[in-house]
């Protein structure tokens, strides 16, 4: 997603001997930590994508679960000797490894989808505000300011208590929480870009407003938005996990990583540590990987730091 966005952003100016993508990659690869993050992210995404193929068990299929296998420690073998539970089982005899793979699917897709929707919505609003200017801009940016003044967790909590449970509801809440970040960034860079000569040139060609905004302004505002998007994916994943932990997120039938951790909380005090610890580790790895990539993207895409 980010690579194609960068293409569009950097592809517009005249081509040099070194393609923009190659330059982008060599700058990105300067940080070994960022490469590690990218590798981890790829791995995590692959696991989520291929979960139905590689998971030892379908954790949603009650026929495959055996209540006799409940709360087995990591490494133990199921009663009938069919599977080894490398990461143990939960209170219903579900293989933790499989449950985590499926949970990762939900966590990652909720995070990525909400960031994409929020980016689309926020970017449009921000660009429109910057383009229209005047009173409209003032009103829109006031709303953005007010919303950013509130802690995200609080807004999401209240929204979810109004909307109710469900993956779609969580998505809506996350988009509403996040769009303002994109709107502010989009407006900020649009204000800078619209004074540039290429916009003036486009205006002189008498191109229509929407065309100038979408074809000329938008691609040049993308780099900072992409950085915000990566960080917001991580934020969204953490927020979804927190909301699920509080019992206001995804339903029990589709447990995300946060839900798995919450389920394990009840067993933690009895010493069944694996039910909470392993999903949490996976969640942490996913978020750290995204943040590492996002950190480096910010350095590479920031024109002020460009040599």
């Amino acid at each position: 997603m980010s690579a194609t966005g960068q293409d569009a952003a950097a592809g517009a100016p005249a081509m040099r001997v070194e393609t923009p993508l190659a330059r982008f990659w060599s700058e990105f690869a300067e940080s070994r930590l960022a490469l590690l993050g990218l590798a981890l992210l790829t791995l995590v995404a692959l696991i989520a994508l291929l979960a139905p193929l590689i998971a030892p068990q379908n954790p949603y299929d009650l026929n495959q679960l055996d209540i006799m296998d409940a709360r087995l420690a990591p490494g133990e073998v199921s009663g009938d000797g069919r599977i080894t539970y490398w990461l143990g089982t939960d209170g219903q005899g579900r293989d933790m490894l499989s449950a985590m793979m499926y949970g990762l699917r939900i966590s990652l897709s909720v995070g990525a989808l909400s960031a994409i929707f929020a980016m689309a919505l926020g970017t449009i609003v921000g660009l429109v505000a910057a383009w229209l200017g005047g009173r409209w801009e003032a009103v829109i940016m006031r709303i953005v300011d007010i919303q950013l003044g509130f802690p995200a967790i609080l807004v999401a909590l209240i929204l979810l208590s109004v909307l109710g449970q469900g993956v779609d509801k969580v998505l809506i809440a996350l988009v509403i929480v996040q769009w303002a970040y994109f709107a502010r960034t989009a407006r900020g860079s649009a204000l800078v870009e619209r004074r540039r000569e290429y916009i003036e040139a486009a205006s002189c060609l008498d191109l229509s407003g929407p065309r100038i905004v979408l074809r000329h302004l938008l691609p040049n505002c993308l780099p900072p938005l992409i950085v915000i998007a990566t960080i917001q994916v991580a934020e969204a994943i953490a927020l979804e996990a927190t909301l699920s932990f509080l019992g206001l997120g995804v339903p029990v039938t589709e447990p995300s990583l946060g839900m798995l951790i919450a389920n394990g909380f009840n067993f933690l005090l009895s010493g069944y540590y694996w039910i909470s610890v392993f999903p949490g580790l996976l969640l942490a790895v996913a978020i750290v990987a995204i943040n590492l990539v996002g950190d480096q993207l910010r350095d590479v895409l920031n024109p002020r730091l460009r040599k």
Partner: peptide, 14 residues
């Protein structure tokens, strides 16, 4: 980076 990446509630549990 770990500090603000790790979900608060999970750190609490740990």
């Amino acid at each position: 980076i770990l500090g603000f990446s790790l979900p608060t509630f999970w750190v609490g549990l740990m």
